[in-house]
């Protein structure tokens, strides 16, 4: 009795809806995804290892993870700041800014890619200012960071916002009444409460950034060893009909994605545990 799969219920339709869910999930997601692992299984370990550790691939990992990490860190800081400003302050245009936060979710990545390139290219609005100073943004790693910051921007804001809004003002008032300064209150009372959600948001932004393709390929310049991200490398291998190589790198990316998914799940559990 204890091992019963499903609790009895008066509502009808479990068999149909659950059955269809499993069927469709398998058909669209699980079976196709397993194709990557099974295809990779045809490679010998040596083939696999040489492919995924060749210098060009290693350089792409460094770039992808490095740029994604920096972008996630930028979003952690500014996302927190934006969330704070949107939750705590009233100012003209607050509603407007609040609603455009989700723009990177809604805007096709290719559009973001060409728009950012137009701004940061040496002839662009900002690029033309930075070029004389010797700062290269577009077609350099900095450009990649800019594109990834754009795509990851909503994650931290949207995960921190509800937590910040739920935070009871009483705790802060209590701290203030006990003589804490604003900064001490933030550091000792508010920050520990929102830290899990900041980390979750950053992890989500990082996971998204590692796989990002559309917004990066226009601004990055795509030079092997220098500005070639890992997803682009997969595309390049595919274009050269090197399916085995593409599959091997894809397996590495998938494993990392799943690990990130696991970490994010744990972080989210941490967030919900901290709430009453």
């Amino acid at each position: 009795m204890l091992l019963k799969f499903k609790q009895q219920s008066v509502l009808p339709g479990f068999g149909l809806s659950f059955g269809y869910t499993i069927f469709y999930l398998s058909l669209i997601v699980l079976i196709p995804l397993s194709a990557v692992f099974i295809s990779a299984g045809r490679l010998t370990w040596d083939q696999f290892w040489t492919t995924v550790t060749s210098p060009r691939v290693l350089a792409s990992y460094r770039l992808s993870f490095g740029a994604s990490f920096i972008a996630a860190a930028i979003n952690a800081v500014f996302g927190l700041l934006v969330a704070w400003v949107l939750v705590r302050y009233q100012f003209k245009g607050r509603k407007f800014f609040d609603s455009i936060i989700d723009l990177p979710f809604a805007l096709p990545t290719a559009v973001a890619g060409i728009a950012l390139t137009a701004i940061y290219a040496p002839t662009g609005w900002i690029g033309s200012f930075l070029e004389p100073l010797g700062i290269k943004t577009a077609f350099a790693p900095v450009g990649i960071v800019i594109a990834l910051t754009f795509t990851g921007l909503p994650f931290v804001v949207r995960t921190v916002q509800p937590v910040l809004a739920d935070l009871s003002k009483e705790n802060e008032e209590a701290a203030a009444s006990l003589g804490a300064t604003r900064f001490q209150t933030f550091k000792k009372i508010i920050f520990p409460e929102i830290l899990p959600s900041v980390l979750t948001g950053s992890a989500l932004a990082f996971a998204r950034a590692v796989g990002e393709y559309g917004s990066v390929v226009f601004i990055s310049g795509n030079m092997p060893m220098k500005t070639e991200i890992t997803p682009l490398l997969i595309v390049t291998k595919l274009e050269q009909f090197d399916y085995a190589g593409a599959t091997a790198i894809a397996v590495v990316m998938l494993v990392i994605s799943f690990a990130m998914l696991l970490i994010i799940n744990l972080l989210q559990r941490w967030v919900t545990r901290n709430q009453f």
């Binding site: 999930l25 997601v29 995804l33 194709a35 990557v36 997969i234 595919l238 894809a250 990316m253 994605s257």
Partner: peptide, 24 residues
Amino acid sequence: ILITLIDLPFAVSPVVSGLIFILL
């Protein structure tokens, strides 16, 4: 587990998502 599986496509890079259908 089912909810996590449903979320899987979010975690997969778009490029890899395309690749799996080429492999198939």
